[in-house]
Write a protein that binds this DNA or RNA. Structure first.
Lengths: 96, 96
DNA sequence: TTGACTTGTCCTATAAAGGGCAAATATAGT
DNA sequence: ACTATATTTGCCCTTTATAGGACAAGTCAA
C-alpha cells in the first residue's frame, strides 16, 4: 500500500529511483524493494520522502502503519474481527 | 485484552495459576505475566488453554490477534485511520 | 547497448519471544 | 500478629526473527 503510493508519487514527480536513492543515501535496489513491498519502508525515511514528494507526512505515516497492521493480520481468518476488537480498545483508551 | 480474558476464565473455573502452569508446563510467573499483559501469550498455548477453560479457540485467537494489532498501532495518532485502510485492503484481497 | 529497474543472496545489528529463578507482595486463615 | 499459599515483579538468559541494507547479476524498454 505504501509502496504503490511511493512509486506513484515518484513517477508523478518525474524522478528516477536513482535520484531518490541519492536523496536518502541508499542503494537503488532498496528503493525498488520499498516500492514493491519486498522490504518494509524504514520509518525514518518517511519525513524525507514526504518533503521530496511534497505530500503530508501524515499520509505516508498512515499507509506505513496500515502496512504494519496488514502484515499482522493477513492470512488470519479472524482478521476482521480482531481489528474490530483492537479498534474498540483504542477508542476506549482514548476516552480515559 | 487476552490477558484479562484468561484471568477471568481461570477464576470462573476456580483454578490456580499453579495448576494452569502445570498444565502448560511452565512457570507460574509466566502465567501471571500473560494474564497481566506483561508478556505476550505464546500462540502455541491457545489451543490448550481453550480446552482447559472450555471455550472456543477462535475466541482466544481473536483476542490474541487483537492484542498484536493493538501493539502495533497504540501510541500512534493515525491508528484508527491506518486500521481502516488495512481493513479495506483485507476486504479487497478477500474478494479477489 | 545503455540506462532503469528488479531480484536473489548475503550480512550485521537489534529486538523481541519465551521463559526461569528468586525475591517481594498480597491475601486469607488462625 | 503470624503463617502459608497465591500472585506479582524484577532481573536474567538464550534463541529466533526481522530490519536495514549492500552488492552483483538479471531483466526490460528504448
Amino acid at each position: 500500500m505504501l509502496g504503490e503510493k511511493l512509486k506513484e508519487l515518484r513517477e508523478s514527480k518525474g524522478l528516477l529511483q536513482r535520484q531518490v536513492a541519492a536523496e536518502l543515501d541508499v542503494d537503488t535496489a532498496y528503493i525498488s524493494k520499498m516500492e514493491n513491498n519486498d522490504k518494509p519502508v524504514s520509518k525514518s525515511y518517511l519525513s524525507k520522502l514526504a518533503k521530496l514528494y511534497d505530500v503530508d507526512e501524515q499520509e505516508l505515516l498512515t499507509l506505513w502503519l496500515a502496512d504494519k497492521v496488514y502484515d499482522v493480520v493477513k492470512d488470519q481468518d479472524v482478521a476482521l474481527k480482531a481489528m474490530e476488537v483492537a479498534e474498540e480498545e483504542i477508542k476506549r483508551k482514548r476516552k480515559n
